[in-house]
Design a protein around this nucleic acid. Structure first.
Lengths: 228, 228
DNA sequence: CTATGAACTATTGTCTACAATAGATAGTCG
DNA sequence: CGACTATCTATTGTAGACAATAGTTCATAG
């Protein structure tokens, strides 16, 4: 609304988006070195903007950079998945506490639209699009809090979660259950949000999250799965 | 024109550290434009590494960059302070839930040392050093969780909080109370952590945080102060 | 045959220079 | 006298080249 889309995106943003897409699409293998010269040829840009884009991705947690040794696609361990999931849960909890009951009713529309698309994807059994719509749904719930830093942090965590999925480290929760049951849980979530009961939403989210923690019990932090 | 020789690690990191220090020390005013050429002269480096450093600081939330209009020191509103404080609380809560009871007893030493230094600073009435020691104390509590992403996110929030203090937007909590009472609250916190009672720690933290929210009631999100 | 060292290569780190754009200023027209 | 426009300047965006370093390979000596 207030955002003006006339801004010509800089090469840095375009390069960051392109590399991010490549990583999340699995076109770049885990731990693969990112040779700057190769990427400049591939993207048709020069090294300075590319290097700035790599700094952005490094801060986002998608790549790791070691001095004089270049950048590599992030390698995710079970510990990393655990960290991503717990952090996501903590951020979602804050968002619910701040955003429910809803103070910006117009923002609910985004969630409702995303949910409608999720149902459509479930009917069509389009799992890829369903995951995308699911992320939009969650992001729109976060936006209810009206908390810019929270939205940014959540987006970063979501991206890393996408990376987990590209690595097949996190496929269980989203793929190994009935699609309509999956969408139904989200519908329940939205209804509780609309009802304005934060505690109930948090309880539902806890059920949501418990499944994801169940396979990480080898980690020292597994105790927290119950608490969250 | 202090020509400092930046060498070994990486000019990007050194430049980022230097500019970060300048911002947090208040040497750069709120909203002040960061002219790249000026900074290159001041730091004795060239523009490419400087620009990469600015990207890092942008991701950290200390500066804002608009395309073709350069970078500015972040301007903090009450809403920003609210966001920083709520995010910090959410991260601390996760850290306590994951780290208490303590599973890495050796890491408690850092907290104990920081607390001892806090007491020393309180005796000497050195408020500046007390704040620094306080941040080390909190950071060491976060480290109990053994959660790298959490530590990084918390460090970023802490930095922005330091920026708040440099802007006198947040001086109340740390400066307008008795120093020994301040340290005493932290001692209580550590004792509860050592006792292994997460709920009690969270309750104490809630008291800790309530004071900071009290001046932000004009914000729409003030309702959360009680919940957190 | 193995181990060690030196030279080489591939890659990153940094710098100078050029192009493009947004903001400012002054001049002119209504 | 005020407002609008064109030019102008300061600053950012981008490019290509040079310097420095870590990893590798080959040669030689034990």
């Amino acid at each position: 609304m207030t955002e003006q889309r006339l801004r010509s995106p800089s090469l840095v943003q375009l390069a960051a988006d392109a590399i991010r897409r490549m990583i999340l699409a699995g076109e770049l293998a885990e731990g693969e070195r990112l040779i700057e010269e190769r990427l400049t040829e591939q993207l048709g840009i020069s090294r300075p903007p590319l290097r700035e884009a790599l700094r952005v991705l490094e801060q986002e947690g998608l790549i790791v950079t070691r001095p004089r040794r270049g950048s590599m696609v992030a390698t995710l361990t079970d510990q990393d998945v655990f960290e991503i999931l717990t952090l996501r849960t903590a951020l979602e909890r804050l968002a619910i506490e701040l955003g429910v009951p809803v103070r910006f009713p117009d923002r609910l529309k985004d969630a409702q639209e995303a949910l409608a698309e999720m149902e459509h994807c479930a009917d069509a059994e389009d799992r890829g699009s369903l995951v995308q719509a699911g992320y939009r749904f969650h992001a729109s719930l976060i936006a209810l809090a009206g908390h810019r830093r929270l939205e940014e942090a959540y987006a970063s965590v979501q991206q890393q979660l996408l990376l987990c999925m590209a690595r097949n480290l996190y496929a269980r929760e989203h793929f190994y259950e009935d699609l309509h049951e999956h969408v139904g849980r989200h519908r329940t979530l939205l209804e509780l949000v609309e009802a304005g009961d934060p505690a109930a939403v948090l309880a539902e989210l806890a059920v949501h999250g418990e499944r994801s923690f169940s396979d990480l019990q080898s980690n020292a932090g597994n105790r927290s799965a119950r608490d969250l």
